[in-house]
């Protein structure tokens, strides 16, 4: 699997990588080109389609996942660099009995979406926003959710869903 670039001294240069991704508590082995992003690995290899591709270059937030508990754009992470980290996607957000996460339910209750395409990213980002303590006011939520674009324009409903869930979490 090595190639012409492998004259880099001690470096072990690979253009194809064998790796194990720990997604939602489950290990997945795969072999991908080195340039494969975590997003494409999730969608095209593991068929975990809940993580959405809106732009592929970190400009929309549709692919937001948690990496060791922190929200990141899966399109800006090489799959190989996510090895050894805990990856949580929308598919792993449910409770032990398969019940919806409170924020997922709040998105339904507040109609926090229309087409649904940005929704998993908004929810993953919202979960992190609450955990970070950045859901103290609507203005704060707006600021800390601005990495997630919703072209259908459900913003006020999304903010309401996060606000309600954060309020519930405080109690």
């Amino acid at each position: 699997m090595q190639d012409a670039a492998n004259d880099a001294g001690d470096l072990d240069v690979r253009s194809t990588v064998d790796l194990t991704l720990a997604v939602n508590g489950e290990d997945h082995r795969l072999e991908v080109p080195a340039r494969t992003t975590l997003l494409d690995a999730l969608r095209d290899r593991l068929h975990l389609n809940g993580t959405k591709k809106g732009c592929g270059i970190g400009q929309c937030g549709a692919c937001t996942v948690l990496l060791d508990g922190q929200r990141v754009n899966a399109c800006l992470v090489l799959a190989v660099m996510a090895e050894g980290r805990h990856i949580t996607t929308i598919e792993g957000l449910h409770g032990p009995a398969g019940e919806l996460h409170p924020l997922q339910q709040a998105f339904i209750d507040h109609d926090g979406f229309q087409c649904g395409y940005c929704t998993p990213g908004q929810i993953m980002s919202g979960v992190a926003c609450i955990a970070e303590g950045h859901a103290g006011s609507r203005a704060e939520i707006r600021q800390h959710m601005s990495g997630n674009i919703c072209r259908c324009g459900a913003y006020v409903n999304i903010v309401a869903a996060i606000e309600a869930t954060a309020g519930g979490a405080d109690r």
Binding site: D3, A5, D7, G9, D10, L11, V13, P33, A34, R35
Partner: peptide, 26 residues
């Protein structure tokens, strides 16, 4: 060259050494 190459730097010294040697490295 078949696509992008990737390597983990074993050390800072290894990283700068490799970076200096490869014009196409980042």
């Amino acid at each position: 060259m078949s696509g992008l190459g990737y390597a983990r730097a074993p050390s800072l010294a290894g990283a700068v050494e490799a970076l200096g040697r490869h014009a196409g490295a980042e």
